[in-house]
């Protein structure tokens, strides 16, 4: 059976140990986590967790049901597909040799990124976008020399009806 990538977004009780329950479920049952992203919502007692996972159809169904079964998971939605907005942010530290600086700045401009730290030999670029954009910019920066990278993992929200 072919594996599909799914994005689950869940509202959970903002309490100690809740993330451990979610993550423990994945490790204990042999599910896989591609990325994970957690923060408080407007309601201080509630956090939102976004998990990207890859599995075949029946396992995806199990993952959703098992997450739903956790007492601290208030609500879970599968945000896979075009009905949701997905974004990721990355901080990319690139080598900035003199003969590369113009090229880097051009890429930053094309991808509407920001330089958030600059030195004699490096730039740190802040980039936000969907999966495709991330892939594209990383492909372009790779030959120039990526020193370090930090990514948030995907966050997602359903689009509101008009």
């Amino acid at each position: 059976m072919t594996e599909e990538k799914h994005i689950f977004s869940m509202l959970v009780d903002n309490q100690p140990g809740v993330l451990s329950r979610v993550v423990g479920l994945f490790s204990g049952r042999g599910f896989n986590i591609e990325s994970l992203c957690v923060a408080e919502t407007m309601e201080p007692l509630v956090s939102r967790i976004t998990i990207v996972t890859k599995a075949n159809r029946p396992v995806i169904e199990q993952i959703e049901k098992q997450l739903n079964k956790l007492i601290n998971v208030i609500k879970i939605r599968d945000l896979t597909g075009p009905k949701s907005v997905k974004r990721e942010m990355a901080l990319i530290c690139v080598q900035a040799r003199a003969d590369h600086k113009a090229e880097i700045l051009r890429i930053v401009d094309i991808f509407r990124c920001k330089i958030v730290d600059a030195g004699m030999k490096h730039y740190i670029i802040e980039v936000t976008g969907d999966e495709g954009k991330m892939k594209a910019i990383l492909n372009l920066l790779k030959p120039i020399g990526i020193k370090k990278i930090a990514r948030t993992g995907i966050m997602s929200l359903f689009r509101e009806p008009n």
């Binding site: 140990g17 451990s20 329950r21 423990g24 479920l25």
Partner: peptide, 13 residues
Amino acid sequence: VGITRPCTKHNYL
């Protein structure tokens, strides 16, 4: 609570 997380329906500290 950490040890029994995967083998209880739920647990509390």
